[in-house]
C-alpha cells in the first residue's frame, strides 16, 4: 500500500510542477513524467496494455508534438523569464493551496465503496474485446486518425506555402 501512496503523491506532484513551472519546455517534460507515472499506476491496476499505450503515445508522441510546437513558437529570454515568474506567482499561488486543502479534506472522508462484481465470469482479454466486441470503436479510431492526419497535413501545408 505504501508504494501506491508514493506513486499517487508523485503523480500529483509532477502534475503540479507541470502547471506551475514558467518554461514551457519544462512543462512539457513534466507532462511526460506525469504520463510515465500514470503508466506505472495503470500497470499496478492490472492494465498492462493500456499502460504501454499511455507510456509510448502520451509520454512519447505527445511530448514530441509539444516540443515541435514550443520550438516553432519562439524562444524566451532570461529577462522575460524573470518578469513572467513574478506574474505567474501572482496568478498561480492559489493552486498549491487549493490542492493541499482538497487533499486534506478528501483524506478525512472515510469512504467505503461497494461495487457489484459481475455474477458470471467476463471476458478480460483486451485483444478479443477490441477485435470481436468493440469493433465499432476500432472503426471510429481509424476514422479519427485519418481525420487528424488530414487536418495536420492541411494546417502544415498552409504553413509551408508561406
Amino acid at each position: 500500500m505504501t508504494i501506491n501512496i508514493i506513486i499517487i503523491t508523485a503523480l500529483v506532484t509532477s502534475a503540479l510542477w507541470t502547471a506551475m513551472t514558467v518554461r514551457l519546455l519544462r512543462s512539457a517534460v513534466g507532462l511526460a513524467i506525469t504520463s510515465a507515472i500514470l503508466a506505472i499506476l495503470m500497470f499496478r491496476l492490472c492494465s498492462p496494455i493500456a499502460a504501454v499505450f499511455e507510456l509510448s503515445v502520451c509520454a512519447g508522441l505527445i511530448f514530441a508534438i509539444f516540443i515541435s510546437a514550443i520550438t516553432v513558437t519562439g524562444r524566451i529570454t532570461n529577462e522575460q523569464i524573470v518578469l513572467k515568474k513574478k506574474l505567474r506567482l501572482r496568478r498561480f499561488w492559489l493552486l498549491p493551496v487549493i490542492v493541499i486543502i482538497a487533499a486534506i479534506v478528501l483524506t478525512q472522508i472515510h469512504f467505503h465503496a461497494i461495487f457489484n462484481l459481475p455474477a458470471q465470469p467476463v471476458e478480460n482479454n483486451v485483444k478479443i474485446i477490441l477485435w470481436n466486441m468493440r469493433h465499432l470503436d476500432l472503426l471510429g479510431q481509424v476514422v479519427i486518425l485519418l481525420a487528424g492526419a488530414f487536418g495536420v497535413v492541411i494546417l502544415f501545408k498552409e504553413w509551408k506555402n508561406d
Binding site: M42, L45, C46, S47, I49, A50, F53, E54, V57, C58, L61, I62, I65, F66, S68, A69, V72, T73, F115, N116, L117, P118, V122, E123, N124, N125, V126, I128, I129, L130, M133, R134, D137, G140, Q141, I144, L145, A147, G148, G151, V152, L155, F156, W159
Partner: peptide, 30 residues
Amino acid sequence: TGRTGLAQALAITLIVIEVVVIAIAAGVIL
C-alpha cells in the same frame, strides 16, 4: 469491477482520440 479488459479497450480508444486532438490543436496554435 473486474472488467479490466473492457476498461483497457476504452482507455486505448481515449488515448488515440487524445493524440489526434493534441495534434490538431498544435497545428491550430502554429
